[in-house]
């Protein structure tokens, strides 16, 4: 691993000229105009994070363009999940900032995340086991609810239209993800692959501008993966959702992503289109390894 670090240790921009435009605003400390011109939906600026002296992320710059699917890959422990947890406010970075549209945060306020138009799924399932599938999905709209509990109990005022609205939306999303047949089962009783899909449904129903997917296909069978790939692509194309994707399956990543950032030991070692990542001999040698055979959009 050390030799790989030496080879790829230089600034990522040097290897991937295509991304220079996006990199420049990061390096120059951009104004809002540059940000808007690059159409950046989400950005990290010099983000570092460590746990009790162990460095998880070191000076990460990252830009996600509006409407793209950006994958973040890297070996286990590279800091991918830490990155998502910083974006969603679970962790507070030691240094650096997170940019979301016009906002800059030193620490993202978790409870406002949904209002900022960001939804996420979790690496280890985080469904509400005691709620049915449809109620799990509906809870993805909880941030929009404005009726009081008294109104809800009495079934008066705003609560009625809200309830009808969320049920309608949940039904649509469940339909979209082929989950209608299990919508009244308890979420905790479903097989793993379906639970992952319910998580996606819960995130999508919020109609986020940006969707963070933390290993959405881990532990899935090949047919399930193929199905999930289609769902992610459809969410991106049909709703224009910007997607940040963490995934181990290189085939899936190459097939889905518009851009890929490569992390290793908490540092970004590469950033570019799948072709650029795929054709970079050093990335292939050092990290992608045998998976390179599958590069070119075939999938595994």
């Amino acid at each position: 691993m050390n030799s790989m670090n030496r080879v790829l240790g230089g600034p990522a921009t040097a290897y991937f000229p295509a991304d220079v435009a996006a990199e420049r605003w990061e390096l120059d400390g951009p104004g809002e105009e540059a940000y808007a011109a690059a159409d950046i939906a989400l950005g990290l600026e010099g983000v570092s994070l460590s746990f009790g002296g162990v460095v998880a992320l070191e000076n990460i710059d990252l830009a996600v363009r509006r409407g793209e699917i950006k994958a973040i890959i890297g070996p286990n422990g590279a800091g991918k999940s830490s990155l998502i947890n910083i974006i969603s406010g679970v962790y507070r970075p030691d240094h650096g900032r997170v940019r979301m549209a016009a906002n800059r945060f030193t620490s993202v306020p978790t409870q406002k995340l949904a209002h900022l138009g960001i939804a996420r799924t979790f690496q280890n399932l985080a469904l509400f086991k005691g709620l049915s599938v449809v109620d799990n999905v509906i809870s993805g709209r909880a941030y929009k609810v404005r009726s009081t509990f008294l109104g809800q109990v009495l079934g008066v005022g705003r609560s009625r239209s809200e309830e009808a609205d969320v049920h309608g939306r949940a039904t649509k999303v469940l339909n979209f993800l082929n989950l209608t047949h299990v919508s009244h089962r308890l979420a905790g009783s479903l097989p793993y692959g379906l639970q992952k899909r319910v998580e996606l449904a819960r995130a999508l129903v919020a109609e986020p501008a940006i969707l963070l997917l933390d290993e959405p296909m881990a532990g899935m069978t090949e047919p399930e993966k193929a199905e999930m790939t289609e769902f992610v692509r459809a969410a991106n194309r049909e709703h224009g959702t910007t997607i940040v994707l963490i995934e181990h399956d290189i085939g899936v990543v190459m097939e889905l992503s518009d851009n890929i950032a490569v992390l290793d030991y908490g540092r970004k070692i590469a950033d570019g289109t799948p072709e650029e990542i795929g054709s970079d001999q050093r990335v292939i040698d050092a990290y992608l390894g045998i998976a390179a055979e599958n590069i070119g959009g075939e999938g595994i």
Binding site: S88, G89, V90, T110, Q111, L113, A114, H115, A119, R120, F122, A126, L127, F128, K129, G130, L131, S139, G140, A142, Y143, K144, R202, A203, A206
Partner: peptide
């Protein structure tokens, strides 16, 4: 069932 997830989804 999951306080952290509940907070994140709003």
């Amino acid at each position: 069932d999951n306080e952290a997830a509940a907070r994140i989804i709003g």
